Each structure stands twice: as structure tokens, then as C-alpha cells.
Simulated assay, not measured.
Amino acid sequence: MREIALYIHVPFCIQKCRYCDFVSYPYLQPESISDYFKVLTQELQIRTENDKLQNVVLKSIYFGGGTPSLVSPEILNDFLLLLRQNFRFSESIEITVEANPGTLNSEKIREFAHLGVNRLSIGIQSFQNRFLSFLGRAYREKEVHNLLTELIDTGLFLNWSFDLMYGLPFQTFSDWKKEMEHLLMYQPPHFSLYNLTLSHQVPLRIFLKKHFALFPGQDWEASIYRWTQQILRKYGYRRYEISNFAKPGYECLHNLTYWRNQEYLGLGVSSSSYLGGIRMRNASTLSHYQKRIKNCQSPVVTKDILNLKQKLAEEMILALRTSEGVETEKLFKTYPESLVQEKLIQLEDFAQSHFIHEREGRWILTSRGTLIANQLFLEILD
């Protein structure tokens, strides 16, 4: 039976964060979300038909954003019912909702759990007000602690995650140590760690250009990353992907689909899909997305059919992000020997520089390699 993952983009936020380059819009009235989910319903019907998805099994559902925790339980319930009518759900299905402090309380947590949501991913970024303010987050430290306390007190979610960000202006080791103390106090089963990365489109990019010296720098970030890995390992966390750590059994099944280069369907504005070896992307503005749906057109505006060399490079890069690494035998079974041999020469070169190592037929990034992973990936793409 064909299994896929499903991603639903909810593009509404209380306010736009200063570092965010995801497609999102101000949440001005409840009708905007209900209207959007009506359009999502239409897209689901179009995509199910166009992409021949009538008989697939969903192994994971991920509501990302934006701020999906702004969605009412009633709307979420209706959409999950619709999905059950169109697809089979795996017995071990993972259903994740991303949430921000200030948009979720104990009552809503209980309602989401009652609907079958079994995983929450909470966007925290920092436990310190001055960093939250700098990033443009719409909540403060007190709301972060309130949400985590309520979540734990309900006892309804064994599987949940939050993320923190490092590499912020004026951030010191002492500041980061405080963040880690809060993390270890709450002991989330899953944790994501990101350094501040600013695209050219975001407001903080201008600040970065003017005040570059205020940012810690790559050497500091590398030392923080290494230190954090060591601390988390002591407390039972395993780094299963470059930016993601989990206690055994709490790895994010949905994200593993991406890193294992498996199929997924993306619904909503700007969402991406990977089906039948084709990468697809929806219209990137809400008006364009809605217009296409209302005209009974697929919202997919770009399709990229990868050749074997591109597929091989992508699969290797995605696999190297994980602790599973690249499996040599699988490559030879899937791709022409000449292409695989060419890439293995690259991996051997990386191994001589101690950026990766081979273990039982798998090529895995070393701790040193994770620090320059993007550079290695660019070489694999060439």
C-alpha cells in the first residue's frame, strides 16, 4: 500500500516575526481562517484527482505555518474528518500541530487531543524577553512558561517538541546556558536547535548589514552547537538530524519522510509536494493560490522532474543530514553504478578530511562534518 505524508500550510500569524521568510499573513479576523480552510477543501479534491491519490495511506499529518494553533478545534475537526473520508489513516499515524505561546491554553490542548492530534511542536525560540522582543515574537517569557506548564499538567501529550534559536546579537554563553537550563527543566521528548539565518527578504537582514559586529559569529555558533550536543547526550537525547534531537522513540515521523526522500503531499499556499519523483510547489501568494482554486485549477505552479543524477545527489544530501547516513547498498540498488561510484569518491574524500566516516556500509557525518554540512552538500550537488 502506498504511504505518504501530508503537510498543510496555515499562513496566519498574530504578527510577522522579523526573521521569518515563510509565507504568512496577519490574523485579522476568524473568518480568514474559516475561508482559507474552505479553499483547502477544494484543493484537496483537485489534488486527489490530479495526482491519483485516492488509495493512499497517510502516515503523518503536519499542520505548519504560520501559527496553526490559531485554528479553532471545530475547523480542525471538520478538516480531519474530511481527510478520513478521502484517505486511510495509518494505525500509527502522527498528527502534529505547530503552536505558539499565547495562542494555546489547557482547554484548547484538551480539545486538540480529543480530535486525535497526538503531537505538538511549540515555537519558543527563546526563554528571555530581550531576545523574544528582538526577534519580533508576539509573546513574552511568562507566556512560554505558562504554556509548557499547562501542557505538562494536562498529561495528554507524551509527544511534543519545542525549538530554540542561537546566534542572536549580544547573545553570550551565559545567555545560552540559561536557555538550556529551561530546556532541561521541562525535558521535551523532542527538541530542535536552529542558528539565526536571515534571508534577503526579512527586516532583520538590514539590521545585520548595519550591525554585523553585534552578532556572535560562526566560531561562537560552532562552539555552542558542539557544547549543546554534549549536554543533550548526557540527558538521553540523540541527535538524529543536524538540527533535531529526540529521546528514543520520539523522532518526528513526518520530518523523517523528508529526510528519507519519501513521498509527501503539501496543501495550502506555497506548499511543496514530492510525488512520483516530481517536486511541485504551490502558488506563493494567498491571492494567486485562492484564484487558481476558485477557477478549479491546481495551485501547483512549478514542477521539477529530477533526472537520476539529481535524484541521487538529493537522496545523499537528505540522508547525510540524519544519523542514519547514506546506505551504500541502497544506492547501488537504485541508481546506475557509474553515478554511484562517482559520488562514493566524493564521500571518500570527505572521510579523509574527517567530515564523515563509514560504519557498516553507511556514510555518516562526524561532529566536525555537521559544522560545515552545507558546504559538503554543495559539493555533492555539483
Rank of each mutant, 00 (worst) to 15 (best):
R2S: 06
E3K: 15
L6S: 07
P11V: 11
Q15A: 13
C20G: 01
F22V: 11
V57F: 11
F63A: 10
G66M: 01
P68E: 05
P68D: 07
P68V: 04
F79H: 11
E98C: 03
A99I: 07
T103C: 11
I109S: 00
L115Y: 05
I124E: 03
Q125G: 05
G136P: 03
E143M: 04
I152P: 09
Y166N: 07
L168W: 01
E179I: 07
S192A: 09
L204K: 06
F207E: 15
K210A: 11
F212E: 15
F212R: 14
A213I: 12
Y225E: 06
R226Q: 12
E241M: 01
F245N: 01
G249E: 15
C252D: 05
T257L: 05
Y258K: 07
Y264M: 00
L265T: 04
L267F: 11
G268H: 04
S271H: 12
S271Q: 09
S271C: 12
Y274N: 05
G276V: 09
R281E: 11
C296F: 05
D304A: 08
D304S: 04
K311I: 14
K311G: 13
E315L: 04
I317K: 00
A319F: 09
E324H: 15
T328W: 02
E342N: 10
K343Y: 02
I345D: 05
L347S: 00
F350E: 02
H357C: 10
T366P: 12
A373N: 10
Q375R: 15
L376T: 08
